[in-house]
């Protein structure tokens, strides 16, 4: 009888423990992880495979990532062929119960190529520009996808996730009002970008991306293209060059030397610089950088 009582007690404890267990989430990017933290709150443990200072296009399929995903309940991917490596990691994890959420669902995708897409266009994304999290308004859509995914993986805490989601979107609305007002200070500014990472940011804040350091997406800068770019920068008196932390500074520095423009190493993801700690401070950092650039010029 005593043994039975102990067995029942242990079983009840284990069962209770289970119901309070946190949802384990893995994301492809630190941006998605930041929003998962907002929506999931204390109920979710989240880790990101892609790091803010790394290029999301190139992630090795490490077995250590597979083991993380094999022990996870839910995976949030960027989609639009940016994190193609995620499919290999998910398959390698062999987790039959894993819920996979594509956070690009419902996004108004830009730069979607029309007609035939081939490798002569560079490392182009046939489904459109995948850097959609860099329009803060898309944060709501991403959060909605995350809310749906978490509710599916953990329906018992659906109300909590909904409440966290509402709180996040309210904060995002307030932040958007502030950012929009600040963005008036650099309205119409022209920048040179290393990669086509900033199309969504440009659309959100009325920035003009006048040229790219890469001659085509994913293609390393060539001498002739850099020479053309120097002419463009001089002709249009462009003062700002945006460089993501993971790109080489050789070509941007060549532009600086010839034109007097300034290179700003800016985060394209949460964690890309020390200031960009979460989804909100990512945009604070970007907007403050542009304001400083205007002030300097």
């Amino acid at each position: 009888m005593k043994i039975l009582t102990v067995f029942l007690a242990v079983t009840i404890l284990l069962t209770c423990g289970n119901s309070f267990a946190k949802v384990k989430a893995v994301t492809s990017s630190s941006d998605l992880a930041s929003i998962v933290k907002e929506v999931g709150g204390d109920n979710v443990d989240v880790t990101s495979i892609g790091q803010g200072k790394s290029n999301l296009h190139f992630v090795e399929m490490l077995p250590s990532y597979m083991i993380k995903v094999s022990q996870a309940d839910i995976y949030f991917k960027v989609g639009l062929a940016l994190d193609q490596w995620a499919a290999g990691i998910i398959d390698g994890a062999r987790n039959d119960k894993l819920v996979v959420v594509d956070c690009s669902d419902g996004i108004d995708i830009i730069d979607k190529p029309s007609g035939k897409v081939d490798a002569s266009m560079g490392d182009v994304h046939p489904e459109g520009n995948p850097h959609y999290w860099l329009d803060p308004r898309n944060g709501k859509i991403i959060a909605q996808n995350i809310l749906d995914g978490l509710t599916k993986a953990d329906p018992g805490n659906g109300a909590k996730y909904r409440s966290n989601f509402d709180n996040f979107t309210k904060r995002l609305d307030s932040a958007w009002a502030v950012w929009s007002a600040k963005a008036e200070g650099f309205k119409g500014i022209q920048i040179i970008s290393y990669h086509s990472s900033w199309a969504y940011l440009a659309k959100a804040f009325n920035i003009q991306v006048a040229g790219f350091i890469e001659p085509k997406p994913g293609i390393e800068p060539t001498a002739s293209h850099t020479a053309e770019l120097i002419n463009l920068v001089k002709k249009q008196d462009i003062k700002v060059i945006f460089r993501e932390p993971y790109f080489s500074n050789r070509a941007p520095n060549a532009l600086v030397k010839e034109t007097g423009a300034t290179v700003y190493t800016v985060p394209s993801s949460v964690g890309g610089t020390d200031d960009a700690r979460d989804f909100f401070s990512l945009f604070d950092t970007l907007i403050n950088t542009l304001l400083k650039a205007v002030a300097k010029s």
């Binding site: 190139f58 992630v59 090795e60 399929m61 490490l62 077995p63 193609q84 490596w85 290999g88 490798a119």
Partner: peptide, 10 residues
């Protein structure tokens, strides 16, 4: 190499 190139396994 022509065609899809995937991420590299460790």
């Amino acid at each position: 190499s022509m065609g899809p190139h995937k991420a590299h396994e460790f």
